[in-house]
Design a protein around this nucleic acid. Structure first.
Lengths: 138, 138
DNA sequence: CTGTATCCTGAAGGATACTG
DNA sequence: CAGTATCCTTCAGGATACAG
């Protein structure tokens, strides 16, 4: 039995232990499992505009393999982030669309993206400094 | 040469391609690289309360190995998210502390955590439904 | 106490070929 | 078109032993 995580990022930290990331009931793990891989994040972005079909998503998300596209979409469907609609035409047409939950994820992800844009140059600069010091030490 | 990503999660999606996640200059990749692994996220949480030393972090973050703790902290230091201070006592004491950039990451992460807490039960329920349908199909 | 250095394994994920 | 099935490689990351 593991202690539940109520707020890793609340203000009042009191040094209490942090929830086990391997506990399936841990919300932190929940996000990490969905957001952890780049593909889910990119797909939420790619689906932000509305429905899209398989091939279109493949085109939109650069570098994704067919395997990962299918796999990630299935996962998102399972999690209730996306709906999958099959139109039995010839050839088959399949459309994906964000659910309410999927759409609601865009806000937090956007916040993260904004942080990223804001700190991109800073982080890159810090890396250079750090790497420089390391090289000098060696 | 790949198109830069300005806003994967902005409102007006126009179906334009999405930035290559392998481009080091892509902000989306920046977040994903830091946030992608559970440890960085958990450490930002663990360090939210202020300075903490190595062994304390190890205790706080359940399940992290010594190797990953060191490795993740080094990465965070390199990215300018954390400072590392060595006190040459016997035995050595090392304290880690979030920088401004590190602290500023807590907001977005908190938003994500809130999403997670809010949607935990829903996602879990959807998974059950999905798995049930799959089992029936098979 | 705070690491570094190796070894080793599982799992992620790309490439490719085939199907309804 | 939208997948599924396989093979194969890479590599993250745990376990362990040793060091300043």
């Amino acid at each position: 039995m593991v202690t539940k995580v109520e707020g890793l990022f609340g203000e009042g930290r009191d040094g209490r232990g942090i929830g086990d990331p391997y506990d399936p009931e841990c919300p932190t793990r929940l996000i990490l499992d969905r957001i952890g891989d780049r593909w889910t994040v990119l797909l939420v972005g790619a689906l932000g505009g509305g429905k899209a079909r398989f091939s279109e998503l493949k085109r939109r998300v650069g570098g994704i393999s067919q395997k990962m596209l299918t796999q990630t979409l299935r996962q998102m469907e399972r999690d209730g982030l996306v709906t999958r609609t099959v139109y039995p035409e010839v050839p088959v047409r399949v459309e994906y669309e964000l659910t309410g939950a999927g759409l609601s994820l865009r806000g937090p992800l956007k916040a993260l993206e904004e942080w990223s844009i804001e700190h991109l140059s800073g982080v890159l600069a810090d890396q250079k400094v750090y790497d420089g010091r390391e090289a000098a030490t060696r």
